[in-house]
Design a protein around this nucleic acid. Structure first.
Lengths: 239, 239
DNA sequence: GACTGGAACTAACCTATGATACCACAACGG
DNA sequence: CCGTTGTGGTATCATAGGTTAGTTCCAGTC
């Protein structure tokens, strides 16, 4: 399970060993249940082991904006390492299994090994790059393009994690969730999905999403996967 | 000048000394000029010494989304340390003086000192937190709220940097720039500004912005400054 | 087989924002 | 003194997307 931590970077065997020995506490959350509520102080970072989760912010009048979506292997909460008060909440989308690692041990580990620090740091930087892509989507793309962009991103991330192939993926996000991620209403998500289906781009039924025209979807979104850094070599530490 | 680097964190004197000795190359850019163009590989991080800059992404059809705005003292490009190919471009808003530090030396420095690494890492995490606030603005706030939120953020950041006081600030962003930051058109920025002026919240003339009703503006945006971490103590390294 | 509760889906209407086009003004140069 | 250029400002119309209020379609389950 915890091997996934190391799989994100190319580490020496001793470092991999140290990561494997990390004390973790796993916990299962039901769909929709909050994992972190953005008020208190967070003392642990977490790794999603199974299921999907998301980070979100609430506004007055109960509006919700989803900030990021996580699939197994993601480490959504690394920012707590150096900013102990989270500025967001985190919730399970599906039933999800999450592993928690105390900040203190993680900080000791990264203080002791610049390579591990760089690998974790890099994870947080990729998160920021994904944030930037979302900003651009929300600010300058219309509903169809936004939707297409999100699907492209999620599919490639799942494929890289070995959780999807053949342009087919599990899609547990419900229409209201998609709405909160895309800055739309669920009604308009529905309209938009129908449009994409009629154009022969995607087909979504009973949680199963098939991308029927990957090239078309990618062109619609003007999707450039570079920001996800799925193929990068990690920058070798100069130490 | 470079003292600003250290001012972001509380470092030991030896570490401050090391920072001061960093080899830097300063360069002046004209307003609107590109500082980084998001294609190549970046070998330097930069510090804004004077003037304002921004990061942006371009879309097909020439649409532009501004991702972040930087004032003197900010280090917009730290992510290049571990992700060498930037996913965005960076441009000067006003005439701006920027200092460049080679990634290699900065990486050596942070490999040698976990405290410096943590301080720099923390900067990138704050950037990500600002990204999240923008995502929420773009996704779930209307034009007036978005505008108000941006003004609150910029004013507090400037005030913290000692560059604004008395609810008065220099505002070099033009209406088309604001439009690209807020995901609106310049026409609608103009409408929105007039609305806020008529409500007695702000007054902007000839680059000088006066916040006439701070409480009202803050309430309109539902602004919570916590994400900017202007008052935090830095987490002490466990090393 | 009827009943429930949660999605997905639709339709009717409304509004915030976009698109286009134009005017006003100030700064500047010849 | 007159053009030119950039920026702010306004009006008019068009439309993407929001709002409200449903109906339909299941998968359980009693």
């Amino acid at each position: 399970m915890i091997r996934r931590l190391g799989s994100a970077a190319r580490l020496s065997t001793t470092e991999q060993h140290a990561l494997r020995k990390l004390p973790v506490a796993t916990r299962t959350f039901e769909a929709q249940q909050d994992i972190i509520y953005g008020d208190g102080t967070s003392l642990h970072s977490c790794v999603v082991l199974d299921g999907w989760t998301c980070c979100y912010q609430l506004l007055t009048e109960g509006k919700r904006q989803i900030l990021s979506i996580h699939v197994p292997g993601d480490m959504p909460d690394l920012q707590g390492l150096h900013l102990p008060q989270p500025d967001f909440s985190m919730a399970a989308i599906t039933r999800a299994v999450v592993a928690f690692v105390p900040h203190t041990t993680l900080r000791q580990l990264s203080d002791g090994s610049p390579t591990i620090a760089a690998a974790l740091w890099r994870e947080t930087l990729i998160t920021a790059a994904i944030h930037r892509a979302w900003i651009t989507s929300l600010g300058r793309r219309d509903a169809r393009q936004r939707f297409a962009h999100l699907i492209c991103e999620l599919y490639l991330r799942l494929e890289a994690a070995g959780l999807a192939s053949d342009h087919t993926m599990w899609m547990p996000l419900r229409q209201p969730d998609l709405a909160d991620a895309l800055g739309l209403t669920s009604v308009h998500v529905n309209r938009t999905m129908r449009a994409l289906r009629l154009e022969g781009l995607i087909d979504l039924r009973s949680r199963q999403l098939v991308i029927q025209d990957w090239a078309g979807l990618r062109a619609l979104a003007a999707f450039n996967p570079q920001y996800l850094r799925l193929l990068d070599q990690v920058v070798s530490s100069s130490a």
